[in-house]
């Protein structure tokens, strides 16, 4: 009379494959620099209709402050906005500009789009990668050097096509960058 229950290894269940290892979720926690939380609160006031709209600004602020968005960041921001962590994880995994792991401290973005490509940006990017000793790119297309100093990214048009090839190093913009200029520029950042 009993209900026959099948047991077959091919039907064995697998653990969910997560965007980050669960074990990391409560690993090394960052401590907030002074004023960080006040800044968050201030950003939230920009969205009086729905706090949820502050999700992206808070994610940007977190990434600017801590370099990447950790599980702690996702959970903290969700709690701050009265959301569930999955609501924030959805955004973090959608927008390519949000990173879930650290990258090099000095961030070099080389434009890869038409004008710059014609003006030699492929060679330029290779040059930077070689000089910075960066390894293969991660899921976001960013290659970081092993000691964590440099991160080189080949990006789409950064809107200065007339002065190709162009690059950005951190927040600074540099036009008509030759290989020689590239070396000079690298020397200026440390």
């Amino acid at each position: 009379m009993s209900n026959p229950r099948a047991v077959d290894p091919a039907t064995q269940l697998v653990e969910p494959e997560h965007a980050f290892p669960v074990s990391e979720a409560h690993g090394a926690l960052v401590t907030f620099p002074t004023g960080f939380e006040a800044k968050c609160d201030e950003l939230i006031t920009h969205y009086p209709v729905s706090k949820r709209s502050a999700s992206l600004p808070l994610l940007h602020l977190w990434q600017e402050t801590f370099g990447h968005i950790s599980p702690q960041g996702i959970e903290w921001i969700a709690a701050k906005l009265d959301l569930q962590p999955i609501n924030i994880l959805e955004l973090v995994t959608f927008y390519p500009m949000f990173r879930q792991h650290p990258i090099g401290r000095i961030q070099i973005k080389v434009c890869r789009t038409l004008s710059c490509a014609l003006a030699g940006s492929y060679k330029l990017c290779d040059h930077f990668r070689e000089r910075c000793g960066t390894a293969t790119s991660d899921a976001h297309g960013i290659a970081s050097s092993p000691e964590g100093k440099y991160a080189v990214e080949f990006v789409e048009c950064i809107a200065s096509c007339g002065t190709a090839p162009v690059i950005m190093i951190n927040d600074d913009f540099h036009e008509a960058v030759t290989l020689q200029r590239a070396d000079e520029l690298l020397g200026k950042y440390d």
């Binding site: 969910p16 965007a19 980050f20 669960v22 979720a25 962590p85 994880l89 959608f94």
Partner: peptide
């Protein structure tokens, strides 16, 4: 019980539970 969501939206959209939940 808001634990389900879509991660990696785009051509790899994945229904997922939040890690650890």
């Amino acid at each position: 019980d808001d634990v389900l969501g879509f991660t990696e939206r785009g051509s790899h959209t994945t229904l997922a539970v939040h890690p650890g939940q």
